[in-house]
Design a protein around this nucleic acid. Sequence first.
DNA 1: TTGTAGGCGTTATCAC
DNA 2: GTGATAACGCCTACAA
Lengths: 350, 350
Amino acid sequence: MKALTDSTAAKPTAARDGTIYQVAQRAGVSIATVSRALRGTVAVAPSTRERVLKAVDELAYTPSRSARSLAEGRNAANGIVFPDLSGPYFAEVVLGYEEVAADHNRGVLILSTHGREAAGEMVLDLATRVDGLVVMGRTVGDGVLRELADKGLPLVLLAREPIAGADSLCTENEASAYALTRHLLDHGYDSFEFLGDADASPDTAGRWRGFVHALGDAEVDVPAEPVRCAFGEVAGRAAADVLLRDHPPRALVCANDEIALGATAAAEDLGLRIPDDLAVTGWDDVMAAQHSRPGLTTVRQPMRELGARAARRLHERLAGETSEPRHEVLPTQLVQRASCGHHLKEDWDR
Amino acid sequence: MKALTDSTAAKPTAARDGTIYQVAQRAGVSIATVSRALRGTVAVAPSTRERVLKAVDELAYTPSRSARSLAEGRNAANGIVFPDLSGPYFAEVVLGYEEVAADHNRGVLILSTHGREAAGEMVLDLATRVDGLVVMGRTVGDGVLRELADKGLPLVLLAREPIAGADSLCTENEASAYALTRHLLDHGYDSFEFLGDADASPDTAGRWRGFVHALGDAEVDVPAEPVRCAFGEVAGRAAADVLLRDHPPRALVCANDEIALGATAAAEDLGLRIPDDLAVTGWDDVMAAQHSRPGLTTVRQPMRELGARAARRLHERLAGETSEPRHEVLPTQLVQRASCGHHLKEDWDR
DNA sequence: TTGTAGGCGTTATCAC
DNA sequence: GTGATAACGCCTACAA
């Protein structure tokens, strides 16, 4: 019978689960109409739209993301790459980023490299799933970034040296280090050390430069090198322990709060009082900086805003903005507490 | 001329940028061979593979993710939904999750709901981009979760009540609260309050239950209600301020460390000494808990492991495991510091 | 081992 | 306003 033949072989495009074809069939329209009714891109007769929406509802239809991406040629998603999420620093950045991206209806893919060998390939893979990418710090080599930039992928670099063809954002490092060191000088200290690895992080490198610069301007002895130290409390404590036994300075500028807190512990172990015997400072203003005794003098950075701004910049690029790459530096704030020396109103921050 | 006609119209499938067709043409093979050579799914003659890889390299070809997803019917990505990332809690969970997922070559999409109205729809949207989903706490209504579970999307619930058809993971709440409260009782305290909103978080609800249970067992007066208080230092401080002015207990059990730290500040404002006048405890063992003075007694949870385990469970499901949903409870650890009262070796944790 | 061809589920361009 | 139908780029039987 003809009908049988038809129903068996006629529909070459009949699809399986909840596809646009099923909706079309149920609503008695073509798939084109379903598509139009759903995205409201072109006028559809109200009665038709009604039927379509009803069918959509009854079938609990959800368009296929990959099919749509393929047809549209875009992923409707952004990515963000960071080394780690353990400190509060990156979490805040990611959060600010996610919030803005989500407001623009874009998915957010994260990739934490934590020093993996394959970081480069992972980033390359990530790049295939997104329309734009934010890359933090020294997570991947410049080669990978250049490759992506050359492919035309919108790129925003965070807290790292700019590369050609990509926007970049960072916070004041050299300036904040200068101000912080200047503050310590004003306290009257005359012997300094810097704890952190300037080779491992562009941020740290900038802080070291500002530190050196300030001491130089004040004609105070400048250490030849920063005391190498990974980020983290344990590393800070260990490095400080060696340093403080050997030739303790009067003031210790640490590349971030965790190092500083570790150094504080090491100092206490050695019976040194802070700030009387040793001044200690950090960066980031983590929660513990406020709660430790004495309170840790540090530099607050607008981390959330950093992430949010990166998302906005990316969105502009994705929206077609084609201006020259911009390189923005966000202001920071010196947070004075007691660890850098006695102030008139001690520990005023709390 | 025939050749002309051919070159003009013959290739109906010629594509534009860096597609598999270009690679095939350059290597002098069919697209099927390119596909096979690239994914190593079927044997390809070494010489052929060579040519293909050369072409791939020269063209800097990268397969289209959406095309692949469409053809394969999967996204090669997982999602994770959490309320916020501001505390260290969620960051750790996400980190643990990402690490394992990345090891399995899967992308990770994040979604932070921070109480947005549209959370449900956002999660539904996220669900279209992933093959499996982890959902934390009370970020979306059960309706949405049920809908996803019914669609067959592998789901792992974290720190929340289970629903039918989904795996779930959480840490000991009731048990840790019981142990913590028991510890306070052993210190000799006899008047207690609980700070936190049991309605807002399943974790908090469990902690409240354990708290009540322990007091009941000890035949000590049980507060009728927890003192409502949002998560966060500011909220904790404000709530504690009211409570402590009104009718201060001897021991204050807070639903997390941030609340506890806020309460500590409020106590100090009122001239109360900790632990002499008031004992305070929290949950999470954030960095500041260790650095505050006195050190904060708290409960440490394996947050990273929670995320990692969720990723593994999801991976098992995606790999086809079809056993009954499992509900796992991860052990916690009581961290005694000085805020709960004087111990023999004070502040031994540091 | 390799090529042919038919999906995968949308979007968008044409005609009608 | 609506319906065919050609992309979109890849995967994978099925043949050869």
